[in-house]
Write a protein that binds this DNA or RNA. Sequence first.
DNA 1: TTGAAAGCGCTAACAT
DNA 2: ATGTTAGCGCTTTCAA
Lengths: 345, 345
Amino acid sequence: MTNGANLNRARSQKSQVSILEIAQAAGVSPATVSRVFNRPALVREETRERVLAIVAEHGFRPNRLGSSLRSGNTRTLGLVLPTLSNPVFADCFEGAEARAAESGYSIMTTVTHYDPGLEAAAVHRLIDHRLEGLILTVANPNNSPILKTLKKRGMPYVLAYNESSSHPCAAVDNRRAAADMVTHLARLGHRQIAFLSGPLALSDRARSRLAGARQQGRALGLPPVSHLVTPSHTQPDRAALRRLMAASNRPSALFCSNDMLATAVIGELKALGLCVPADMSVAGFDGIRYGAYMSPSLASVEAQGYEIGRTACSLLLVQIDNGVSRSGQVPYRLIDGGSAAAKRS
Amino acid sequence: MTNGANLNRARSQKSQVSILEIAQAAGVSPATVSRVFNRPALVREETRERVLAIVAEHGFRPNRLGSSLRSGNTRTLGLVLPTLSNPVFADCFEGAEARAAESGYSIMTTVTHYDPGLEAAAVHRLIDHRLEGLILTVANPNNSPILKTLKKRGMPYVLAYNESSSHPCAAVDNRRAAADMVTHLARLGHRQIAFLSGPLALSDRARSRLAGARQQGRALGLPPVSHLVTPSHTQPDRAALRRLMAASNRPSALFCSNDMLATAVIGELKALGLCVPADMSVAGFDGIRYGAYMSPSLASVEAQGYEIGRTACSLLLVQIDNGVSRSGQVPYRLIDGGSAAAKRS
DNA sequence: TTGAAAGCGCTAACAT
DNA sequence: ATGTTAGCGCTTTCAA
């Protein structure tokens, strides 16, 4: 450990070219070198070129730490997501990162695995790096200690996927989207529809989608949409699923709160010897690309993660720049996949 | 913009509790407060508690920028991957992040979309943040300007997925794994095997896998394994695929360099009216979880991304600590999926 | 066990 | 158009 520290010091001494050495070599003041990087227009072209020549010669790059400490901006954003294993969040990362890079920002990412305890620790680890803002998906925006902390610290943030009227966010209209899916299932002749999800306390998206599904069920005069809670957000509870299938008023369509769950449900149903969609229609939510390659292809609601990430990042950058915090709604689209088909008697 | 800058200043003034204010409030020197955070054992318990009380009262967290600038360590690692849309890389992120968090490190991630031009720019954006080390997947480690830069700067790094004898890396043995898949296909009765991939120049994994496949083909006395190059690493070239299928010595098995490509190939074959595996066996590489849910399930080689990420991060942390750079091999496992079945005549 | 003082690399006022 | 100076928040000798 001591040894390691020594090595580190040795290493960093090598790269001890600071703005000062560049200034001396170019025969100018450090301030001028700084200007060359930050306000090149203020420097006479000749001087600028002389400085840049020296800079190139040394392979010099200004140390952001010094700059950040002095000027207060780190050009770094934080991204806090439940997981990247779910492609919809991976896409969100890509959208956010692409937008951030366009404005010269880098992104520090962390995942919470839907664990509110981890959420807090992870966010603190990020905040300590003095990020300029945060994009995050929380369990529940109405009761999130983290959001309170951020507000108190005056740290700009935008929610992604979470919908909220009291916080800036980038999301799809989950209620309406879920309602549309129910309408779709009803058109296919389904009346007994069950909604499957993980614990609602850990995902307000699941809650909104369930609410939208139930509301639309009522509006269409269907029997109440039942709700099956599985411990995990991505894996169905085998026993519960079996009970559901054995019930007398067994549903003819399962609407799953996300595509990973829907995919796993289809797998389980097959394992139970049932055929999708002949014995049971299944629909998901998110529109992950793999859904299209499955057979039958997955019926779902496409909520483009890339656009959510990109929008959230744009909103965040505006907020950092102006202090104006707005929300944005991202469009969705029903995917008419083969996993949800006309009901057979 | 000016307005925005003012707002920013107003915001940051609020959080102007520095170690100095804490020191004054606790009646100690700033050095002591610093010790409470970094070497608590050196501080008398009573003093420590007094300081911690004040710290808690103010919700104070030390500014890492100051600390990093002074001490030289940012507790931040960089991660450079081709894309996170491919679940195998998303898993890699999760493995690396989990390991990093265990040691108090945060991760800055960027994606290159297999574009060597982007690669360089992205890495420079990261380096400027004075990361302590980098985990990266490059197009070709033997001829990568970035790796040269890193070496020159003395920045610790570990390759993920890339195999190399001259750079530290965490990867599976791609040649052997591909050879094993060819053996598997041969056992199923296939003799004419084609290998599909994107441009080899952009992925040394594809190159190693092709080499392993060809070598094993020869060893088993099969006809030469042909190679079909598609412009994208994840999407097959429809026309080329059609030509391949129409050829007189048409292969009976397609070995794709990764699962995303394999998935898309299966989709295309279906679109051509062909049945997998009856008309054509298809195998992939990576072992993404969705493969198990497809029907037929995807034959593949599982190379756990999570483990690759985790291993790479462990190796990197050792390197940062000791200066000792080692490589690690991650095990793989053949997945006997239904998409590759016994050859029918 | 604690404090005083210097300075990490940079930029922003202010001065010229 | 450029230089001078001070200091961002912290840690690290060195001294007491």
